[in-house]
Design a protein around this nucleic acid. Structure first.
Lengths: 150, 150
DNA sequence: ACTTTTTTGTTGCAATTGCAATAATAATAG
DNA sequence: CTATTATTATTGCAATTGCAACAAAAAAGT
């Protein structure tokens, strides 16, 4: 049943591709939207958690965040209680583009789920959450350098 | 319900990341496995279809295929009936690594679907197929330069 | 027949991506 | 309390990725 994972891959790449093209209108380059939406939604999140959430390499997130900061869309604030971390916040300018990201997301959602009943959507979501939990555990292990055996 | 698409994104990135790390063992660099498995499974497929299947830019597929050829894992054959296309075939060497890709795929599958019943798996697959069809239509439009409206 | 459009392939950039390696602080252990 | 480990962030490469722009052949229109 390996086709399930292929379907997921296809859907993810297609949607990502669409988003990247559409967000150029808001001066966002490839991938940036992923980080910006999450920072808008979870003000104060740190880079490390962001990478973990998105499932991307730590250094990739570092660079994406760096660029968002340079563009003035987000801000890094040092924490007096913990000098190791930098909390991330969307600036006013960042918050201005957020509604656009939301609208695009809602639309993609609508398109993707067209023809599915509310119940089917609920089922799909619940199943995917479980799959994600399964996969996420392995991802963290492998990222740490541990080897899966099969 | 936009969380569905996020779950899909997370799962896809996590699995892709794992695969990329594991396939280094077989001298494959990032992304190459996507193309190689499909060429092994569909001998004679052309680049354009490959990109369409995988949902990746045409030029990205071009470069991936180019590299696979340079590494001697696949072969491009010109078609006497159609001088525009080049059919792709795995070489012996390419076919040798294929079983490894398969085993990895089966294992990822097992991990991802752990705890799901056969029926749930069936349901998930069927729902995802529908979602993919929905998304794929939009992707092709947007790739052609057409604008979605919302 | 021939003109226009679509398909298929390639290359030049400019950018993201991620592994390795480094650093610094915080948390844990002995 | 100090030594070791884990967390968080950064930078230097080397590679993939994709948009633009081109080319050539095939397919569709007129």
């Amino acid at each position: 049943m390996k086709e399930i994972l292929r379907e997921i891959g296809m859907i993810a790449r297609a949607l990502d591709s669409i988003s990247n093209i559409e967000f150029k209108e808001v001066e966002l380059t490839r991938g940036q939207y992923l980080y910006l939406v999450r920072i808008c939604e979870q003000p104060g999140i740190i880079q490390e958690k962001l990478a973990e959430m998105i499932k991307v390499d730590r250094t990739t997130a570092a660079r994406a965040v760096q660029k968002l900061e340079l563009q003035g869309l987000i801000e890094k604030r040092s924490d007096p209680d913990n000098r190791k971390i930098k909390k991330l916040f969307a600036t006013e300018q960042g918050m201005e583009v957020y509604p656009f990201l939301q609208r695009e997301g809602v639309h993609s959602d609508k398109v993707a789920l067209r023809g599915l009943s509310d119940e089917e959507i609920e089922t799909l979501y619940s199943l995917l959450t479980r799959v994600r939990h399964n996969v996420e555990a392995d991802w963290e292990e492998v990222k740490k350098g541990n080897k899966r055996q099969y």
